[in-house]
């Protein structure tokens, strides 16, 4: 079975148009290629690394990711590195956070787009050489550039907007005020 990227209706393999919403189920808008558009190519690429605001002693125990358009935030925990992208079992790409179900393909998210890394000094994001780039608070990262993240930072993968809320060990998950109830203004 294949799933319509727009309305999530299931269709038999080989179906060319979704019977529920008429969306195309083949070719570059669907199958393997990431939609490509010139997004933020004119933004200045700077070498400036953002200030570290996470206290050096604190340890990140998990991450709450709020995805624009999604009803519930996603929780990531238990690893020191999380890959973000679109699942493609055919090419053995299984991201820790699969953005395919959130319209990732249309929004220009690559199969291997970016990664979060938990280090002793806090949380960082790295662009993995994605088609449409990664932005942190409006600044376009260079391919493979690593950028620290602080609470509430906006990360854009292509056109998909995420807000990141690290869980720090000296604050309990619930008391952080973000974990389960991230702020709704994220744009």
């Amino acid at each position: 079975m294949i799933t319509c990227p727009v309305c999530k209706h299931s269709e038999l393999d080989g179906t060319l148009f979704c019977s529920e919403c008429g969306s195309r189920l083949w070719g570059d808008a669907f199958a393997d290629e990431t939609a490509s558009f010139s997004l933020g190519r004119d933004l200045p690429r700077t070498e400036t690394i953002g200030a570290l605001v996470i206290p050096p002693q604190s340890v990140v125990t998990g991450i709450t990711v709020r995805i624009t358009g999604a009803a519930e935030p996603v929780q990531l925990s238990g690893k020191t590195e999380y890959m973000l992208g679109r699942a493609d079992p055919k090419h053995d790409v299984i991201p820790d956070l699969d953005l395919g179900p959130y319209g990732g393909q249309h929004l220009g998210v690559s199969r291997r787009h970016a990664s979060f890394a938990v280090t002793d000094t806090g949380l960082t994001v790295q662009d993995l050489g994605s088609t449409n780039g990664t932005q942190v608070n409006g600044r376009l990262l260079n391919p493979n550039e690593r950028c620290p993240l602080k609470d509430g930072d906006e990360v854009r993968l292509g056109k998909l907007v995420l807000n990141i809320f690290p869980h720090l060990n000296f604050l309990s998950h619930r008391n952080s005020g973000y974990g389960n109830h991230p702020p709704s203004a994220h744009q």
Partner: peptide, 8 residues
């Protein structure tokens, strides 16, 4: 494929 598919 193991499952049925559509051919037009």
């Amino acid at each position: 494929l193991p499952q049925p598919q559509i051919i037009y």
